[in-house]
Computed example of a mutant assay.
Amino acid sequence: MNNAHVQSITLGDVEVIRVVEWQGPLLPARSLVPDTTREMWKDNEARLAPDHWDPDSDTAVVALQSWVLRSGGRTVLVDTGVGNGRERPGSPHFHHWQGDFLGRLAEAGVRPEDVDVVVNTHLHIDHVGWNTTAAGAEWVPAFPNAEYLMPAADDFYYGPRNGYGKGLQEDDRLLYEDSIAPVHRAGQAVVWEGTHRIDEHLTLEAAPGHTPGSSVLRLASGSDRAVFAGDLLHSPVQVLHPACNSCFCLDPERAAASRRRILERAAAERELVVPAHFAGAGALEVRKEGGGFAVAAWAAWGSSASGHRL
């Protein structure tokens, strides 16, 4: 399975399907990762351009994508994009977004009723939007047979008990009301903390900082390892300079600590690192280099078993 929008790779006994809804320039590079300098991007132009950085416009290139994992006889969907027709006045890129998310899932051979588990790595706008779909004037779960795994710390922070993200952004209340609360009302939400095992191959693990409850999903099957890193990384420049946070990280110090911990383990165990928003090949192996890390190899989609990443 390998086309412009849907690509697959096999890790041990788990099929991983990449579903790309959109890919392109998003924000000025140092608006997306404000801790970086112009030199950090320019000095690594050969590694970053053109898939992750457009040097002419100095704009970061990203992807809006989800991941389907076929594991243990079940279908697991990791993150659900922006959602169509949502009121997001504080997020002009995503306000009244119209995409073809369900069509892309269909290309991957996945119908909404086929999904057994939805993983929200964290509760940001571009990770929970297709949790629900419109049914008349109501929002209802888009995946009627799925349990939805949500980090407890984010459910508290963005929910009514903490004033919808302490009332800092109206979009936080709107996303909770249209993409999270309906899942709770339907009895399909599973709120977890610390770690949560999905099956023999898949485990969720807290990695706070980007949001209070941001998490990663670890895959271990046979000799293959992967970590779905959510928004700990928005650009490969953060692999090269792991202390640099995105503009969306709520707790920069904790986010940087989580990022370094994830990269340290990935380098030591040859885990495939699968960030939420990397364009281009979308996933990579890393190795230690100086005080940071470097790209060891990019994922080779359409391959399987040994040597799948090289």
Rank of each mutant, 00 (worst) to 15 (best):
H5S: 12
I9W: 01
I9A: 05
T10W: 08
V20T: 11
Q23W: 06
G24V: 08
L27Q: 14
P28S: 10
R30I: 07
T37M: 07
T37N: 04
W41A: 09
W41S: 10
A46G: 12
V61L: 06
A63I: 00
A63S: 14
L64R: 09
S66M: 12
R74T: 10
T80Y: 00
V82H: 08
V82K: 05
N84T: 07
H96C: 10
H96F: 15
Q98N: 12
Q98R: 15
L102G: 00
V110N: 00
P112C: 03
E113P: 04
D114K: 02
V118M: 02
N120S: 13
H124R: 14
I125M: 09
T132Q: 05
T133C: 11
G136R: 07
E138I: 02
V140M: 09
V140N: 09
A142V: 02
P144S: 05
E147G: 10
A153T: 01
A153I: 02
D155L: 13
Y158H: 13
P160H: 05
R161P: 10
G163S: 14
G163K: 11
G167Y: 13
D171N: 14
D171F: 05
D172N: 15
Y176V: 05
D178K: 05
S179I: 01
S179D: 09
S179Y: 02
P182W: 07
A189N: 06
H196D: 01
H196A: 03
I198A: 04
I198P: 02
D199G: 06
L202T: 06
L204C: 06
A207S: 12
A207I: 04
H210P: 02
R218C: 08
A220W: 02
S221L: 05
G222E: 02
D224W: 08
D224C: 11
R225V: 08
A226L: 00
A226Y: 02
A229D: 01
G230R: 08
D231N: 11
L232P: 06
L233C: 06
H234R: 06
V237P: 01
H241C: 13
A243R: 13
A243F: 11
N245A: 15
F248K: 10
F248R: 12
D251W: 11
E253D: 14
R254W: 12
A255I: 10
A255C: 14
A256K: 04
A257H: 10
R261T: 15
A266K: 04
R270F: 10
R270Y: 11
E271R: 12
V273Y: 00
V273S: 00
V273Q: 01
P275C: 08
P275G: 08
L284I: 14
V286Q: 00
R287L: 12
E289G: 12
E289K: 14
G291W: 15
F293R: 03
V295H: 02
A299F: 01
S306D: 15
L310S: 15
